[in-house]
């Protein structure tokens, strides 16, 4: 199930544990902000839009966040950690590094397709949401860099590969997805797995080795 802001609060919620309600509320606010930002762009979104879409009281919003900016940063962090969790879990199902990369990329594409509004928030709107959001965007790419760097151990060229290779590969993958998300070409995204896998693995395994894994 997606993080959809139209999911109604459960009846009798007063009896639910406080913590559950709080988490549920935050998830609804994240989803609402992500959907509003996808539709009108981050700058145009107001707290009133978010409150209305989430179906919560204005007070509830301000109990959770001091401003739209703070809410955006929390949404971005939530979106990115959701994506990263999925990637790590999928990659963990394999022992070999090339298969781990393929599975991780597949999980990331799955996240983008399942949660387009959240994905847009952390990959498109983040760039328009001010310095703190851009800084977080840049830092979160670093988490992927360290996953990729392990490829140097299995590559015959490992020690000779350029220092910035992983940064460039991840930047390339993000750019491709950003372009498709910005123009709402979601159907295309799930078909990109073979070519993105090949793109990411070629510097480590050479074209043939990369092609074999990509074609699995």
């Amino acid at each position: 199930m997606g993080y959809n802001s139209t999911t109604r609060p459960l009846p009798g919620r007063q009896q639910l544990p406080r913590e559950f309600i709080a988490r549920h509320q935050r998830a609804r606010i994240f989803a609402a902000l992500a959907e509003e930002a996808s539709e009108q762009g981050y700058r145009a979104v107001t707290v009133a839009d978010v409150v209305k879409r989430a179906g919560i009281a204005r007070n509830t919003f301000y109990e959770n966040f001091s401003s739209k900016e703070e809410c955006f940063l929390a949404t971005q962090e939530f979106a990115m950690s959701t994506a990263l969790e999925r990637v790590v879990e999928a990659a963990g199902a394999f022992d070999e590094w090339p298969q781990r990369v393929r599975a991780g990329l597949g999980a990331f594409l799955g996240f983008v397709v399942d949660e387009p509004a959240l994905a847009r928030t952390c990959m498109v709107e983040a760039l328009a949401a001010g310095p703190a959001a851009v800084r977080y965007y840049e830092e979160s790419q670093q988490a992927f860099v360290s996953l990729f760097k392990l490829g140097r151990d299995v590559s015959p060229q490992g020690p000779d590969l350029p220092e910035t290779l992983e940064e460039a590969l991840i930047g390339g993958v993000f750019w491709i997805l950003y372009q498709r998300l910005a123009s709402s070409q979601l159907e295309e995204i799930s078909e990109l797995l073979p070519e993105l896998t090949e793109f990411a693995l070629t510097p480590y395994l050479g074209p043939e080795g990369a092609h074999q894994v990509a074609a699995l």
Binding site: A168, G171, G172, V173, W175, L192, F199
Partner: peptide, 24 residues
């Protein structure tokens, strides 16, 4: 045969991300 249709887009995106990160 080994080049996918998105190769160039990915190369450009990768290049620009290295550049803009340093400018940022």
């Amino acid at each position: 045969a080994g080049l996918s249709p998105t190769t160039e887009e990915a190369l450009v995106g990768g290049m620009v991300s290295l550049i803009s990160r340093r400018i940022f």
